[in-house]
């Protein structure tokens, strides 16, 4: 079922005013329809992670409103948020949010056990595609950041979603890994008719994405 992610004059409370003026995102109103992809580009400190956190309902200290399917993320209760996060919103935060005492595979299974969205075979295929199959049984604490980024992307794909939020997901990946990850993400989004929203320092130059300057 198509969903709409609406932003209405959102201004984070702690963002300096100079970043709000002339911003293509802050204090603007626009809609993200599922199926369309957006890329928000900005230099460090201009609020890329803030935007992803606001869209994910992890940050609520802002003026304006963000709604998904009519539910305000600012006022949603814990039941609405957990429902959204397991079936509508998926996210790869900048810090990845992996559990260091679990293996990369366990981190992926933790999500998939909740949603039962992927089979073990499908997870193995995704890991193979991103080149981390050999390190899946390694503790997250001992994996490289790039390997962890790819595991976090796989984990984010282990659920049904209408919006996939990615906060600088390729920052520690080489070009080949970036390309493989982007292909996997877009294929999965297409299957689910979902929208991909990513933030980045540098444009991906992918034609599927509408680019915005924050």
């Amino acid at each position: 079922m198509p969903q709409k992610l609406k932003l209405q004059n959102v201004v984070p409370s702690y963002l300096p005013e100079k970043y709000v003026l002339n911003s293509g995102v802050w204090n603007q109103s626009f809609e993200i329809d599922s199926g369309s992809h957006f890329q928000f580009q900005a230099l460090s400190g201009k609020g890329k992670s803030t935007l992803i956190n606001c869209l994910f309902g992890a940050l609520k200290s802002y003026s304006g409103d963000i709604t998904i399917g009519g539910i305000s993320l600012k006022t949603a209760n814990h039941q609405q948020l957990s429902s959204l996060r397991s079936s509508v919103l998926s996210c790869v935060p900048q810090g990845l949010g992996l559990f260091q005492n679990l293996t990369l595979k366990e981190n992926i299974e933790l999500k998939n056990a909740l949603t039962k969205h992927k089979t073990e075979q499908e997870i193995a295929e995704m890991a193979e595609q991103l080149g981390i199959n050999s390190v899946l049984h390694q503790k997250a604490s001992t994996a490289s950041f790039g390997q962890r980024q790819r595991a976090a992307i796989i984990r984010a794909l282990c659920q049904p979603f209408a919006f996939l939020l990615l906060d600088e997901p390729f920052s520690h990946l080489d070009n080949d890994s970036t390309s493989a990850s982007l292909t996997l993400i877009l294929n999965e989004a297409e299957k689910q008719n979902a929208s991909v929203v990513l933030t980045t320092h540098h444009s991906t130059n992918h034609p599927s994405f509408k680019a915005y300057e924050i």
Binding site: H78, S82, L84, R85, S86, F99, L114
Partner: peptide, 13 residues
């Protein structure tokens, strides 16, 4: 921190 991460994964209270 772990509890917040579980919330972000969609786990309920």
């Amino acid at each position: 921190t772990e509890i917040m991460q579980l919330f972000f994964l969609g786990y309920g209270v």
